[in-house]
């Protein structure tokens, strides 16, 4: 019986140790950043499915929404929810086109600094090109499965809404597979990317609503 307990304890401990985040060394960070930056330059388009989990501490279950995302350099983005409702938001030429279950509206993003930053953040999160030291204080970690970049906004404008953005890059992959947006309250939004296709031809009509 005692052996069994020890075995369970040992296995649990091993799991904790192996899944624990370790700070990356200066050399590792430099290598990682160089790889991501080099690879992200070769990306022209990204097509991916996503699942978004909204975690609110008081709910018994995260709110799950999902859909498709298309991105084309330099800054065409269509973020489309298909479940459990249809809602799409297109970022194009400094404008934001929203289609809310057939109800369409346009926001001039150029006139709003916040939207400009949101746009930059979304595009950056998806393409992994977010290592802007002016906007964020960045720390780097690794686990058995991931390299993790943790970005803390330096400006009050953003830190009011988001305390920290965690970008998870699978080891041996250069594209983000998970983004976690942590709010100051402790609640968070987690976005998991699946079925990613790089540099497939995406027609411009995809970026119209």
């Amino acid at each position: 019986m005692r052996i069994k307990i020890f075995t369970i304890l040992f296995l649990a401990l091993t799991k904790i140790v192996f899944s624990q985040e370790q700070k990356m060394s200066v050399t590792e960070i430099a290598e990682f950043k160089a790889t991501i930056e080099k690879e992200s330059k070769t990306i022209n388009t990204i097509k991916t499915d996503f699942i978004q989990y909204k975690h609110l501490d008081f709910l018994s279950k995260d709110i799950e929404t999902s859909g498709k995302m298309s991105f084309k350099t330099p800054n065409l983005l269509n973020w489309q929810y298909t479940k459990p409702y249809n809602y799409s938001i297109v970022f194009k030429s400094n404008k934001i086109f929203i289609n809310d279950q057939g109800k369409k509206s346009i926001i001039d993003a150029g006139s709003s600094k916040i939207f400009e930053k949101i746009n930059k953040m979304i595009v950056g999160s998806v393409s992994g090109n977010m290592f802007d030291d002016k906007e964020f204080a960045i720390s780097y970690y690794k686990t058995k499965e991931f390299y993790i970049a943790k970005l803390s906004p330096k400006t009050k404008e953003i830190s009011k809404y988001i305390q920290q953005i965690d970008l998870y890059f699978p080891i041996n992959d250069v594209i983000v597979s998970l983004v976690k947006l942590n709010e100051p309250s402790g609640d968070f939004t987690k976005i998991v990317f699946k079925n990613k296709i790089l540099n497939a031809k995406i027609d411009d009509s995809v970026f119209s609503n």
Binding site: Q52, L56, F58, L59, T65, W79, Y81, I89, D187
Partner: peptide, 20 residues
Amino acid sequence: VKKINDSIHRVVLTTDFGNK
């Protein structure tokens, strides 16, 4: 909306992206 005890409801509105 969630009833968190006998007298209190928690009410939250977020954007579609999840921002509160």
